[in-house]
Structure formats: structure tokens, C-alpha cells
Design a protein around this nucleic acid. Structure first.
Length: 327
DNA sequence: CATCAGGGCCCTG
DNA sequence: CAGGGCCCTGAT
């Protein structure tokens, strides 16, 4: 375990409007052990070049009265025992701006959302929320793989055993969080060893993804600047990455607001209840209706509604939802 | 106890 | 393009 001392800090200004808690905390996501949150404060680990860094991100743009418009403002404090130079801080700024979509221009979406008859209140409540992802592409793909064909409990177990075996425990700012391993770190680990961590057939995907990343076959930055369809096609070529994992990456990491294509069966049940108040509606119909309603913002809009119901679930009992989530 | 279906994906035919 | 198999776990 490594204890990290406080290092440099800086300010980030997201594009307004910005919703801090909705952007940094997604109640629908499983706790992976690499980040933590409380209202107005968020912690995570990150790697910049070869340096492991702990981050605390604070909301400094809270409005004191609803009438008062305040510029959104984030204070980022780094924790790292080595010197962080200006170029590394610059890289860190760029990464955070990208991963949390801080420069998002949501004006068009917000105009449409404000006119929404049914979910207008939900969109208002979360005004300024981003679809975001704290990890690098490799990390998110690993998360995607452990999500496959597994319940939340099992996913958490798999991620935990992988992080305990290969990750690095960082202690900073009173938190203890894991940083994910490097793809090359798994070179010395056999598929057999991975299987011993009860991740099953996913071992093969993790091995192959790690090798591909370690060999530089995937350029995350190139993918980010590619057209959305091309990026999705590239992702789908990776072993172990199918329509659902690609959708997660496109929506959360690459901020493809329209990417409402694949609907997993358990999501279908929840959408059926949410949008039609029925047990089961054909996936094609859901997809067509949502696309007709929200167009190029279909995935973003669904993301708002999705997180809202999971958010409500933390304070209120939603029996039909509990049944579908299956912890 | 046994059987089976998952918060997918790959591979085969 | 449909469907079987895959690791494991919890439900029945």
C-alpha cells in the first residue's frame, strides 16, 4: 500500500450548466473500488505517464440561492509523492475535461428536454449532468468484461479480486482506493492464474485485451477523435467486446449522446416499466420510440432517466426495480 | 441434492 | 443469423 501526500491543486471550470453530483456519481454503477463520492466531493485514482495520483475533486460552484447564477467551478487536489510538473498537470486537466465531459455543449439538448412533457422534471432536476467515466479505456473495458453475464455481487467480487491481485492500493486524503494495473502487468500472468480468481471464461478476454493494449494495438486518443461509428467498429473488433460493452464505452467514455442501440434484456424490463408501465415491450419498439423522441440525444436522455430512478432507489423503495436489479 | 438462468460474447453451422 | 457453450452464483 502506498500513502500519498498532498501535492499541487488547480481549478477547472466546466461549461455551464453543470451538475456536480450527477456527473461524478452514478448510482446505477457498481462500486469498483477505484473511486468514492459524497455530495459535493469526489475521489479517484488516476495514472498520468508513470505516476499514480490520488485526486480529490470538490464542487466550488454551488449556488447559495436558486436565484443566484454561479459559474460552475471545481477544485482539484492531487496526492502524489513525486513532483508533478506543468505538463503533467496539463495532461491531468485534459483527461478530466475529457472523462467527465466538462466542455459539453448541452444547450440544444437542454432546450429539447425543457419541452419534454413526461420527463421534463427529471431533466430539470439533473440539468448539467454528463455521461461520464472515471477510468481510462483499458480500465473501462475491464469493468465491461466483469459486468458480462454476472450479477452485481459477482461483478464486485471479480473486480475486487483482480484489483487485490494486480492493482495498487493508494491511501490519500483519508481514503483507500485502488489504482488499476497496467496492461503489461498481466503479461506475466497466465490465463490459468486469472481463472483461479473466479472470473471464469472472462479470463481469456482480459488476457487478450491486456496484450492488445500492451502491444499498442489500441490508441485511445485516436479512437476519441474518430467518428463515432468508426470508433464503435474498432471497439467491436476487440476480443470480448460486443454490442453492450461497446455501447457502454461509446456512451460513458466517448460521450456519444445518440448511442442508444443495444438494449440488454434486464434493461429492456426496466425501460418497459419506466416508459410504458408494462412488464415487457419489444426492444425494437423501445429503441424506435426513444429515438423518435430524443433523436441524436437518445442515449443521453435515457441516461438521465436511468440514473434518476437509481438515485431515487437509494432513498425510496421501488419494488419492481429491486426485482430486476438482482444484487 | 440437481438444475437452470443470468447486467454477453464467441464460434459454429 | 440462430443457437450452443462458457465460469460461477444464487434461485428454485
Amino acid at each position: 500500500m502506498r500513502v500519498l501526500r498532498k501535492n499541487r491543486s488547480f481549478i477547472l471550470i466546466p461549461a455551464a450548466p453543470f451538475h456536480f453530483d450527477g456527473t461524478f456519481h452514478k448510482p446505477s454503477h457498481f462500486p469498483a473500488g477505484m473511486d468514492d463520492w459524497q455530495p459535493g466531493v469526489y475521489w479517484q485514482t488516476i495514472r498520468i505517464r508513470s505516476k499514480l495520483i490520488g485526486l480529490r475533486i470538490e464542487d466550488c460552484g454551488r449556488r447559495r440561492s436558486p436565484k443566484l447564477k454561479v459559474t460552475p467551478k471545481l477544485k482539484v487536489t492531487t496526492f502524489c509523492n513525486r513532483r508533478l510538473d506543468d505538463s503533467e498537470i496539463g495532461r491531468l486537466r485534459d483527461e478530466l475535461r475529457w472523462r467527465f465531459d466538462l466542455d459539453a455543449d448541452l444547450r440544444d439538448f437542454n432546450r429539447r428536454a425543457a419541452r419534454d412533457h413526461r420527463f421534463g422534471p427529471v431533466f430539470r432536476k439533473w440539468l448539467g449532468m454528463r455521461a461520464s467515466n472515471a477510468y481510462d479505456l483499458y480500465g473501462l473495458l475491464i469493468v465491461g468484461v466483469v459486468l458480462q453475464n454476472a450479477t452485481v455481487r459477482r461483478t464486485v467480487q471479480m473486480m475486487k479480486s483482480l484489483l487485490e491481485a494486480f492493482g495498487t492500493r493508494l491511501r490519500f486524503d483519508g481514503k483507500e482506493l485502488f489504482a488499476i494495473w497496467l496492461p503489461a502487468d498481466l503479461e506475466r500472468v497466465s490465463e490459468r492464474q486469472l481463472r483461479a480468481m473466479r472470473i471464469g471464461y472472462r479470463a481469456k478476454s482480459i488476457k487478450r485485451l491486456s496484450t492488445d493494449f500492451a502491444d499498442g494495438k489500441i490508441d485511445e486518443h485516436a479512437l476519441r477523435s474518430m467518428g463515432k461509428q468508426d470508433a464503435r467498429d474498432e471497439l467491436m473488433k476487440l476480443y470480448g467486446v460486443g454490442p453492450e460493452t461497446a455501447r457502454i464505452v461509446m456512451a460513458d467514455a466517448f460521450h456519444d449522446y445518440g448511442a442508444f442501440d443495444h438494449i440488454a434484456p434486464w434493461q429492456q424490463k426496466i425501460y418497459s416499466r419506466l416508459f410504458y408501465n408494462r412488464a415487457m415491450v419489444p426492444a425494437k419498439r423501445i429503441r424506435d420510440d426513444i429515438r423518435a423522441q430524443y433523436g441524436e440525444y437518445a442515449m443521453l436522455a435515457v441516461g438521465y432517466i436511468w440514473e434518476d430512478i437509481f438515485w431515487n432507489r437509494t432513498t425510496e423503495r421501488i419494488p419492481w426495480l429491486e426485482k430486476e436489479i438482482r444484487l
